[in-house]
Design a protein around this nucleic acid. Structure first.
Lengths: 225, 225
DNA sequence: CGCCCTATTGAGGGAGATCAACTCGGGTGG
DNA sequence: CCACCCGAGTTGATCTCCCTCAATAGGGCG
């Protein structure tokens, strides 16, 4: 169902030279690190794998997800340009991460960040902020998955993406319908049908399948409750 | 639908004397604080309210949840004896919290914890651990809400409760079917039907509606995938 | 142009929701 | 002590939203 490729971890050939100044994880906070490139659907890290790094999207987009033994998949989150992912407790990752589209990712050693956090409150607070922002998003998403209808889920998704991506004149979705469906707890068919329904209502326009223009945000906001 | 009562915040009459030694939030880590009692369904804190405290369940049980404007409710989590809740980023709570049953709760000022975290890595790490344990649980729960069937959800719930509560010879559920339903993204009817189905299969026994004996954990574990 | 992958559309079925009746148990008051 | 009541839980009948299966349409790239 989903392309499974060999894991290419840190140290593999796709490592590129790190910027000499290090990785700026957030304005004013730099860490030594390096960048890597990943092709579409390539694995960045796997569930239960050692969590030695934290990651920041430089270009492209990333999905984190979990799978059940029978293949059912739940996308936990999408990570767009500038966003940090892979921040976890302890030793190992609890999600897998894959490139949604070709992308470039900056890596910083967890040990480096941990040491900085112990010495510098700025770094500690930054990490704390990352984790709790994630928590907040996950709580919103639980509401969506547990209690919202298909239209409401799709509306919430469109609004979320439009807030997180610079959307001058319409969204450019990096992810497939299958990714969206697994994020929203729906099937690709339902996602597709719901989008065309919203298009018929003139709430959105879909010039091409990955490009969506929000024509009536008021309706979407209403659906978002 | 749910009993809405006036909020009784810190400083209200139900405050009882704090233990002179302070609140032991985790073995070896004490903070000055005090305890309060809440009756069944009483509000402990409300969504968007100032998050001045963190809370620990001394006795009874607590639910945290969110509601949509039309009353649909999603229970984000249950908090049993010994567990800490209300740890959030920044200023305000993102969930409401209510007493599932009569309970006693210990409160510690956030400012106290923050100060301790800045000076002592033990406290900082403890907070970090709390937050990321929550995150982990929420990710599991997203999988449940997004992709699991009713039986799988109920099985997962029973196993979760049996792991978190001392369950010598059966669970004693503090929460109603309605709470369970809103936690699992189902209706009370479906929860009830699923439980009786599991009872007919001899997977569980239900001596009384709040008491459940796990007779065949293997089946439940299989359903938990 | 033809291939392949992604997306859309249609027809039909099913898991769970909804609506409604009934049962159970615990508390209260006569 | 029993009758009554009320909330919680169970069970039944029906409906519906979304899933499943299947066919068709687009669109990027060789």
């Amino acid at each position: 169902m989903h392309t499974q490729q060999a894991h290419i971890g840190p140290g593999a050939i796709s490592v590129s030279a790190s910027a000499p100044s290090g990785i700026e994880v957030t304005p004013g906070l730099n860490f030594p690190g390096f960048t890597m490139r990943f092709g579409r659907n390539e694995e960045i890290f796997g569930q239960a794998e050692e969590a030695d790094f934290i990651y920041k999207v430089v270009s492209g987009a990333v999905r984190t997800f979990r799978v059940l033994s029978d293949g059912r998949r739940q996308v936990v989150g999408f990570h767009l340009v500038g966003e940090v992912f892979g921040v976890e407790r302890g030793e190992s990752h609890r999600c897998s991460a894959e490139a949604v589209a070709d992308c470039e990712v900056a890596l910083v050693r967890r040990s480096v960040v941990n040491k900085a956090s112990d010495q510098d409150h700025t770094a500690a607070r930054w990490m704390w902020g990352l984790l709790s922002a994630d928590l907040e998003r996950l709580q919103d998403h639980m509401m969506l998955l547990g209690r919202k209808t298909a239209v409401e889920r799709v509306a919430a998704f469109l609004l979320e993406m439009s807030h997180r991506a610079p959307c001058a004149g319409g969204l450019d979705l990096p992810m497939s319908r299958s990714d969206i469906a697994d994020y929203l707890g729906l099937t690709i068919e339902t996602v597709s049908r719901t989008l065309t329904q919203l298009e018929r209502d003139r709430t959105i326009a879909i010039p091409s399948s990955r490009r969506i223009v929000l024509q009536n945000r008021a309706v979407l906001n209403d659906l978002d409750s």
